[in-house]
Amino acid sequence: MEKTIAGAQDTQTAGHIPKQRGESLLETAVRYAEERHWDVFPGTWLEAVDGRQRCSCGDASCPAPGAHPARPDWATQASGSATVVHRMWQQQPAAAILLPTGRTFDALSVPESAGFLALARMERMELTLGPVTLTPDRRMQFFVLPGATAKVPELVRKLGWAPASLDLVSLGEGAYVVAPPTRFGSRGAVQWACRPTPANRWLPDAEELVSPLAYACGRDR
Rank of each mutant, 00 (worst) to 15 (best):
3 K>I: 07
4 T>Q: 10
5 I>F: 04
7 G>W: 02
12 Q>E: 06
12 Q>R: 08
12 Q>N: 06
17 I>P: 00
19 K>I: 04
19 K>F: 04
22 G>K: 02
24 S>M: 12
25 L>W: 06
26 L>T: 05
27 E>T: 02
28 T>M: 11
29 A>R: 05
30 V>A: 08
33 A>P: 15
35 E>V: 04
37 H>E: 11
39 D>S: 10
45 W>G: 08
46 L>E: 05
51 G>C: 14
51 G>N: 05
52 R>T: 13
54 R>K: 11
58 G>S: 14
62 C>I: 03
66 G>P: 10
67 A>P: 13
71 R>M: 15
72 P>L: 13
76 T>P: 11
76 T>G: 15
77 Q>G: 14
77 Q>M: 13
81 S>L: 12
85 V>P: 12
86 H>D: 13
87 R>Y: 14
89 W>E: 08
89 W>Q: 10
91 Q>R: 12
92 Q>A: 15
94 A>L: 14
94 A>S: 09
96 A>D: 11
96 A>R: 01
99 L>F: 04
100 P>Q: 04
100 P>T: 06
100 P>V: 07
101 T>D: 09
110 V>N: 03
110 V>A: 03
114 A>L: 14
117 L>S: 10
118 A>G: 09
120 A>L: 12
123 E>P: 09
123 E>T: 01
125 M>V: 01
128 T>M: 01
131 P>I: 09
133 T>Y: 02
136 P>K: 00
137 D>P: 00
138 R>D: 06
142 F>A: 03
143 F>V: 05
144 V>Y: 01
149 T>W: 05
150 A>V: 08
151 K>I: 11
154 E>I: 10
157 R>Y: 15
161 W>L: 10
163 P>V: 11
163 P>I: 13
165 S>L: 12
171 L>Q: 04
174 G>A: 06
175 A>F: 04
179 A>V: 05
184 F>S: 04
185 G>Q: 08
192 W>A: 00
196 P>F: 01
197 T>D: 10
198 P>V: 02
198 P>T: 00
200 N>K: 03
201 R>D: 08
201 R>Y: 04
205 D>L: 01
205 D>W: 02
205 D>E: 05
206 A>R: 02
209 L>M: 07
216 A>T: 12
220 D>K: 02
